[in-house]
């Protein structure tokens, strides 16, 4: 996607966000089967098919400019969305290097990076940014390196320090989270920040996933999908701003669910970073309304079945309970009960 026509759209107030037909087609629909439960669904993050969301290390799409604008609005309202503990400075530079090198390599028409030893120049055409700085010298950048690039890549980012046999969430840039708080979770260890997730304990999921990540290697990033639902195409579904988006959950009816209710899918990718030995956890959020989803009937059918028998703890945790009935009623129109073959493909 090198010649993107960026859409001017909003993720709040009048919510003008929509997906083009091409964006719907490449949407990361996460359900290969009619039933869903948590699992350690981790796979190698290797470059995928051209045009797909995993073609590149970091996906830049038609929402890029508007999403970056929304990040600035959220940061301006709440400074706690960016935080980095002092020992994470090497990881910050690693993040800047990885994102700049990846974007410049994968989208040369949009981004360029020129290096003269430690003198780097970064050009971001869509956002009209150009800066020269000395790599490793934070005083030569307008913001801390992680903050600087966190604003220029779609998605949320956590930097994890590995020590004492676990991972610590010691830095984060979080403006599009599915209801968790960076200001509260910063500095927590793996099992602490995952504490609220139901049902995983007895399956040993978190222990296995942690062991796997602890031996994650540079050059072999991995990814997984996670999902939830959001009412209205809102990126900032933070607990901080819950009073702003919470009431929307009660406005869903079987009539308006197609337009209001969105499937929210996170492409989460994990990279071992070079100098800091930290792990980058990137959370790229994709939103699609049920109406858009129903462009492909097998997606609507499948989602109906997944939601119908979702474990009650997951319904509660993901905050779906209050509008569950309304959403099921809307989706049921699209489900004729016929069997669907396994797989996540649209058509």
């Amino acid at each position: 996607m090198n010649n993107l026509a960026y859409k001017r759209e909003t993720f709040r107030d009048d919510y003008t966000y929509r997906n083009s037909p091409a964006a719907i087609r490449r949407f990361p629909f996460p359900f290969a089967e009619d039933h869903y439960m948590y699992s350690v669904n981790i796979e190698q993050h290797q470059p995928g098919a051209p045009g797909s969301i995993v073609e590149h290390a970091f996906d830049i799409d038609e929402h890029y400019v508007s999403e970056c604008k929304d990040k600035l609005l959220t940061l301006a309202q709440d400074k706690g969305r960016y935080a980095a503990l002092p020992h994470m400075m090497d990881a910050q530079w690693d993040f800047l290097e990885l994102t700049m090198e990846s974007l410049a390599r994968d989208y040369p028409q949009l981004f360029t990076l020129t290096k003269d030893v430690d003198h780097w120049t970064w050009r971001n055409r869509p956002l009209e940014i150009e800066d020269s700085f000395i790599f490793g010298d934070a005083s030569t950048l307008p913001l801390e390196p992680f903050d600087y690039m966190g604003r220029q890549v779609q998605g949320d980012f956590v930097l994890l320090d590995q020590r004492e046999g676990t991972l610590f969430a010691d830095a984060g840039f979080i403006t599009s989270q599915a209801d968790w708080s960076l200001a509260f979770d910063i500095g927590m260890s793996w099992h602490e920040w995952h504490g609220p997730v139901p049902q995983v304990e007895k399956m040993g999921i978190m222990d296995r996933a942690l062991k796997f990540l602890m031996s994650l290697q540079q050059g072999s990033p991995v990814r997984r999908l996670n999902w939830t639902m959001t009412i209205n195409p809102r990126l900032d579904t933070s607990p901080e701003h819950f009073p702003e988006w919470g009431p929307d959950k009660l406005t869903v009816t079987p009539q308006n669910a197609g337009e209001k209710a969105h499937l929210r899918v996170e492409l989460q990718s994990m990279f071992r970073l070079p100098r800091s030995n930290a792990i980058l956890f990137s959370i790229r959020c994709y939103l699609i309304s049920l109406e858009e989803l129903a462009t492909y009937p097998r997606w609507a059918k499948r989602f109906h079945r997944v939601l119908k028998d979702l474990h009650p703890d997951l319904l509660e945790y993901k905050g779906i309970k209050v509008y569950h009935e309304a959403v099921l009623a809307w989706l049921s129109q699209h489900d004729d009960g016929a069997e669907i073959a396994a797989g996540t493909h649209p058509g």
Binding site: V40, I42, Q44, F212
Partner: peptide, 8 residues
């Protein structure tokens, strides 16, 4: 999937 003994 993972090729690292974690996903099952």
């Amino acid at each position: 999937l993972c090729r690292g003994g974690a996903c099952g």
